[in-house]
Design a protein around this nucleic acid. Sequence first.
DNA 1: AGCGCAGATTGATAAAAGTCAAAAACACTG
DNA 2: CAGTGTTTTTGACTTTTATCAATCTGCGCT
Lengths: 250, 250
Amino acid sequence: MNELSRQATLNPIHAPHAACSQCNLQELCLPVGLTTAELSTIDHLVSERRKVARGDALFCSGDHFTAIYAVKLGFFKTEVLSEDGRHQVTSFYMAGEVLGMDGISAETHHCDAIALEDSEVCLIPFNQLESVSLKVPTLQRHLHRVLSREIVRDQGMMMMLGAMRAEERVIAFLLNLSQRYIARGYAAADFNLRMTREEIGSYLGLKLETVSRAFSHLQEEGLVQVEKKRIRLMDTARLKKLLSHDDASR
Amino acid sequence: MNELSRQATLNPIHAPHAACSQCNLQELCLPVGLTTAELSTIDHLVSERRKVARGDALFCSGDHFTAIYAVKLGFFKTEVLSEDGRHQVTSFYMAGEVLGMDGISAETHHCDAIALEDSEVCLIPFNQLESVSLKVPTLQRHLHRVLSREIVRDQGMMMMLGAMRAEERVIAFLLNLSQRYIARGYAAADFNLRMTREEIGSYLGLKLETVSRAFSHLQEEGLVQVEKKRIRLMDTARLKKLLSHDDASR
DNA sequence: AGCGCAGATTGATAAAAGTCAAAAACACTG
DNA sequence: CAGTGTTTTTGACTTTTATCAATCTGCGCT
């Protein structure tokens, strides 16, 4: 409600090239097996980086769509808002993930993307991406995969929202974060949440109090340690079991 | 649970060409403004039609991904299942809609697609689609839009699952169906449901009893008429209002 | 350092949806 | 066309989650 999210002021970084070829997130953003020539084409494509300060919007619902964004550094949430005041967090994005693809269909964004901490994105102009894709089949295929991955992810999300109870959702959320940290080479079981309880709740279709209670309960059970925003998963195996075993017949 | 969904036996129809150029669903499936030459390339691409009997699966979770499918006739649901028995309907597809795109990312399908009535699909081999896309930029763009539309749709779905109460979900569901029937030239306010209350419930993250009660209540209010599977929307305006106005502050 | 405030926790209570059960309506099959 | 099994409706009751409210914590600011 008090999201003062002014649009990000344009903040191109003064390295003219984002230089995918040098980027340590390459393996997350780009297909493997590109030739040096192809890589340099892509370097050219991803020409601009942009800083987004904590709380600022990278794009807003209704904005004209021109580009997709790879998170270079930091953390984002996206949220959709319905005609009435309701809004819901639909995703969180961390370094190496690509956001903004909702805008392709109607050349208009359908959600707001807000930085949860000071962040940097690589801007990929979509028209150009399409042109280059025509020349570099590997890249085309990769784009399709990225788009499809988003679809699969969303399906998992629906599953969670539709078929899991509160505590299970929280567990699934934590395990998912853990997975993604692993993929980035961070500790699997010890991390800091970048979002508030309210944002987690919105994402999980729960109220913040319910999230808080779930954390407390999981802590009582010795499954996690919660210390404000710091989370330590104490028994990943058992957490996983709780997810798959707990056969509510919804 | 008693989904005897045997895999669809291969049922190519003996018109060797699906003939998009002749198809009345063209405007739903294909971009506008294709040249005759491009259209004939696409005719060639969409080479096979397939019948799927009611209750049969078009594809299953885990199946190797080779193609996406345009519904030519009939009605499908897709559902994901988690490790434990839980399953959730993630989408319904009617004529002119494209399904199977979840398979692109890992070349494996992540859900089951089941025909809810005797149906026919046009099979679009994905490798070939990608090749042709390289030659026909309009088609490439169209594919991207179709993929993106699915993402947007899923986001709306999450919104619904996360932020709406039971009755609102049912209303949103009915209005959405209505919209899609309109786009196909059918009556906006009078249609037959192809799915059971249980499937609706699964899709909406509710139990079948809750769906049934919501129907009954909406009927009492004079908003819809429910007669088994036949639905008539008696006051679309008020239904829409209920959706946007009902400001639960979730 | 102290103030103010957003964020988090916890408890008591209310509302919403789920569960269980029974009966009715229907649809498919032999 | 009777019979069986599925689907739907409805009711009584339970569980889960939301709501409201009070309190606590810790951070940023002046």
